[in-house]
Computed example of a mutant assay.
Amino acid sequence: MTRFDADTPAERRELFANAVAAHRERGSPFITIEPEPTPAEAAADEEDLPEDAPEHTIPWIQLAEDTVNLDCTDAELERLTNLLDEYPEFRIDELTSPDDAQGTNVRITARADPDRLGGFFDRVFRSVYGRDEDYRAWVVEI
C-alpha cells in the first residue's frame, strides 16, 4: 500500500479493499480505519470532554481476520442492523455493553473478499455514522 487516505466514494472503497488485502497478505493482527473528525468531534478533543460522550467520539472500524469490530450508540446500532440486511453473508456475533460505557461494541463475522468489505466499510461510515459523501478516511493501522 502506498496511499493511506481517500475522500471520494470510489477512492475510499479502493483504499479499504487494499488495506484488507494488505492485512491478509501480511498476516497483521488487524487494520483500523477512521474518518476525519467532524467539527463537533474536533472541538471535543480540544475541550477534553469525557471519551465516552458518543456524539463526540470519532468512530472507527477494525478488521481482524474475518471479524469486524466497531462501537455504536443505540441509534447507530439500529442503523447497522438495518444495513446488515443488505449483507446476508455478514452476521453479528457479539454485542458487549459495559456498564461504564455509553454504547455497544459490535463484533461481526464478515467472510468476504476485500472489495465487498471495502464497500461495507464505506457504507458503515455513511449510513451508520452519518458521514457525508465526501468525507475523508484514513487507514491508521495495518
Rank of each mutant, 00 (worst) to 15 (best):
R12E: 03
A21S: 15
P59E: 05
I108Y: 01
R136L: 12
A101S: 08
I142V: 07
P114R: 01
M1F: 05
T81A: 15
R136I: 07
D99Q: 13
V124F: 04
L117P: 00
P39D: 06
E94I: 08
L63H: 01
E133G: 06
D113K: 06
Y135W: 09
D134S: 07
P50E: 03
E89A: 13
E133C: 02
G119M: 04
D52T: 08
D93K: 05
L80T: 02
T2Y: 08
I31N: 00
E141K: 05
N69D: 10
A42H: 11
A53Q: 10
A112T: 04
D48G: 10
A53R: 13
D122L: 01
N18R: 15
E94Y: 12
V124K: 00
A64W: 06
I58L: 14
D132W: 07
E55V: 08
L84F: 14
A112I: 04
A42D: 13
Y87L: 12
D48H: 14
R136V: 11
A6P: 00
S97A: 11
W60Q: 08
N69K: 05
E47T: 08
T57D: 07
A22P: 03
H56Y: 12
V106W: 00
L70A: 01
I92M: 14
I58V: 14
D66T: 11
L49D: 04
